[in-house]
Design a protein around this nucleic acid. Structure first.
Lengths: 163, 163
DNA sequence: TAAGATTGACGGTTCAATCTTA
DNA sequence: TAAGATTGAACCGTCAATCTTA
């Protein structure tokens, strides 16, 4: 049969198993990590990610657009999230002297306390559920996979609204 | 220094790189797949997952709790989502004769049209961004990783509200 | 006009409470 | 009492529009 709509190359058995496994693992893993962070330390995964970037800077103070670049988040998401974190006292805002359009986000004492409380248990859970199940070779392969796929996405059309 | 609070085993360089890569790949990959499904076929990833389970059944008709088991979703999430899908005409409800507490969810003609429209492009994107970047050996390793981590999570305490 | 950032509306997800039938 | 399922409130993320300053 001749057709102009070419059939897509469907996934074969192995690919299909890998994809379903990946989706299931990811959903459950993220769900558990999020739940533990929330119940034990009252922070979400998103809160945690923001706090990690802030603590990576010596002065705990980062421009909003730089946070967005580090996290690869859309700016509206970041803006909404920072507003919520500010309301909960985890971060504070200050004006940027050199560019009046911009803003600095600073980690607060409460924010620092929150991540210092959350981090040890979080990394223990990542170990328990993830790295303790993997061989060193599997860890290397995973890093390679991530790099290759990320490289493809960088060369492919950018995610619509890059910044 | 002697302390009762044992230091957590932090991630080493390789683990850290693998974990950050995994998180970044996952976020961007899911974001792109979701965006394409939404803009081209007006369905979300969640819609797609539900429709896949329904079309896997010969009569396109599944009990709600069985859908929940297949998808590993919480029941309230499933209930909310099915309500939205019903409102949009993708699925329909019918009563269960053998158990009056339960309900059947059935795929509609519009639902079938939606997934038949979305699936080819979706699988092409999964190929393009993911499997075309991987060697067969990497695909095998990924499947192993997923199975090992899923096995650990099954033996670990269940996700609070299993059903 | 473009860059940095915010806002409001809307759909998605979780938690706790509830409802109905087994 | 427990199983199957729904509901309402609150939080999260995306889209499109907007605001202010460069």
């Amino acid at each position: 049969m001749l057709t102009l709509m070419t059939e897509p190359r469907w996934l074969d058995i192995k690919e299909s198993a890998a994809w379903r496994g990946y989706l299931a693992m990811n959903a459950q893993l993220m769900s558990r990590l999020a739940r533990q962070l929330q119940t034990e330390s009252k922070v979400s995964e998103a809160d945690f990610a923001v706090l990690v970037v802030l603590t990576d800077h010596a002065d705990g103070r980062v421009r909003v657009f730089e946070l967005g670049r580090s996290l690869a988040w859309e700016k509206s998401r970041l803006s909404h999230h920072l507003a919520r974190m500010q309301k909960r006292g985890l971060v504070a805002r200050s004006e940027c002297p050199s560019d009046a359009r911009g803003a600095f986000i600073e980690i607060t004492t409460a924010g620092r306390a929150a991540i210092e409380r959350a981090a040890p248990r979080h990394v223990e859970q990542v170990r328990d559920l993830f790295f303790d199940q993997l061989t060193p070779a599997q860890v290397d392969t995973l890093r390679d996979i991530a790099e290759q796929v990320l490289a493809r996405m960088r060369e492919s059309s950018p995610p619509c609204e890059s910044e």
